[in-house]
Amino acid sequence: MNFGRISVIAMNVFKEVIRDRILFIIGFYILILAAAIGLLPEIAASTENKIFLDFGLATANVLGLVVAVFVGTGLINKEIEKRTILVLMAKPIARSEFIIGKYLGLVTVLAVLTAAMTAIYLGFLQFDKIDYSTNSLLIAAFFQFLQLSLIAAVAITLGVFTSSLLATALTFFVYLTGNITQDLLQFARLGQNPGIQRLTQALYLILPDLSRLDLKNDAIYGLEALPNSMVLVGHTVYGFVYSLMLLAIAIFIFSQREF
């Protein structure tokens, strides 16, 4: 595996996405926060300012999700539809390098986007004199980045063997279901239906447990509300390992395809 070739592919993805979408997303985020501050002054100034704190984190997560899903599902399919994949595969580039490079490029975009939106978010909180815990919000932003990176791996994996439209729909399904798998598991146990219990258990085992990487609500209440450091490390490892497993699946499927 040649890391030089991987870095070139990743840089090309990064430049393309930054040029086409990121500045627009960041500008849109600024407008949304400015509108929220202006339209909801009483809420923003209420006790502990929880609503605006939650709104800023949730909006950043949604915008990052849009980038991860729509860009991720199209990274491979775009090359196939334009037939540029034939030119790339004719070069001394391994298919694993191609997938990893595409993924790392998108992850870099998500890292820049998350960092920019977090800085803007903290700037609005400071400007409006809203009380917050910097460390807890930064931890929540880091785990938001991990969640988006995992979703990007899902999007790329699905985009390898399905159309962009179907991959987009399935990725959103994984995101929505992955955030409630624990709730579905508990609900099925209350219902006492063996069939539903087996289905929800299968979903819990197969789909990523994205609730592990969602610390928005915990961060709003400060560091004391966050899980302890060992649990946070465990969640971090979980996110990395699951993403690596998805990339391994994507590489295997892509290596079997004929163009």
Rank of each mutant, 00 (worst) to 15 (best):
M1H: 11
N2M: 07
R5E: 01
A10F: 00
F14H: 13
K15E: 06
E16W: 04
I18G: 13
I18K: 15
I18Q: 15
R19F: 03
D20Y: 09
I22H: 13
I25W: 10
I25A: 12
I26R: 14
Y29V: 02
I30H: 05
L31T: 11
I32T: 06
I32G: 00
G38P: 11
L39T: 14
L40Y: 08
E42K: 12
E42T: 09
E42L: 12
A44S: 15
A45N: 15
S46F: 00
S46T: 06
S46M: 05
E48P: 09
K50E: 11
I51M: 13
F52E: 07
F52G: 10
D54H: 14
D54R: 15
G56S: 13
G56T: 01
G56E: 01
A58L: 10
A60Y: 08
V62S: 11
V66C: 06
V69H: 06
V69C: 04
F70L: 13
G72Q: 07
G72N: 07
G72L: 02
G74F: 00
N77P: 01
E79I: 07
V87Q: 05
V87A: 07
M89K: 07
S96Y: 09
E97P: 04
F98N: 01
F98V: 01
I99E: 02
I100R: 11
G101Y: 02
K102Q: 10
Y103H: 07
Y103W: 06
G105Q: 02
T108R: 09
T108S: 11
A111S: 12
A111Q: 09
L113D: 08
T114G: 06
A115Y: 12
T118F: 03
T118K: 05
L122H: 01
L122Y: 02
Q126A: 14
K129Y: 00
T134P: 03
S136C: 04
L137T: 01
Q144L: 10
F145Y: 13
F145T: 00
L150W: 01
I151L: 15
I151H: 03
A152D: 03
A155I: 02
S163Q: 05
L165F: 13
V174T: 04
L176S: 14
L176R: 12
T181G: 07
A188K: 10
I196Y: 09
L199W: 10
L199T: 08
L199N: 04
A202L: 15
S211I: 02
L213A: 03
D214V: 07
N217Q: 12
N217R: 12
N217T: 14
D218H: 14
A219N: 03
G222S: 05
E224D: 12
L226N: 04
P227L: 00
L232T: 01
F240R: 13
L246M: 12
I249F: 11
A250S: 12
F252E: 11
S255F: 08
